[in-house]
Write a protein that binds this DNA or RNA. Structure first.
Length: 103
DNA sequence: CCGATGACTCACG
DNA sequence: CCGTGAGCCATCG
């Protein structure tokens, strides 16, 4: 199993209504500085994952993906009860919704 | 096969 | 606030 497989496993564990950052996912997957790899993986994988619960540090949604634009991510998060400020870029109150991994 | 690339983050100026 | 460079590593062409 490689890095991306572990990334997928980590993301599957994020509960509805919670979010975490690329950096955190990378760290849990074993490479704290491979945040960019997490994004690259999510941009290409076809696996069904709660990708919208992964945001940038500080709560910013800096995603640029033609299939899943930032607007869609914001909509998905709001549908789960997460409040997102309509800024540019959109900002989640991450201090309040950040996921605390139990394993 | 091998170099370029990227939904990030941090340090520095 | 903005730009630059480095670190990470699976995938793409």
């Amino acid at each position: 199993m490689g890095f991306s497989q572990r990334v997928a496993e980590v993301i599957k564990q994020i509960p509805k209504g919670k979010v975490t950052t690329y950096g955190t996912v990378a760290a849990l997957a074993g490479s704290p500085r491979a945040a960019l790899m997490v994004g690259r993986f999510l941009a290409r994988t076809k696996i069904d994952l709660p990708w919208h619960r992964v945001i940038g540090k500080g709560g910013y949604i800096t995603i640029v993906n033609p299939f899943h634009p930032a607007e869609e991510q914001v909509a998905l998060l709001r549908s789960e009860g997460v409040r997102v400020k309509d800024q540019k870029p959109p900002k989640v109150e991450i201090g309040k919704y950040q996921w605390h991994p139990s394993e």
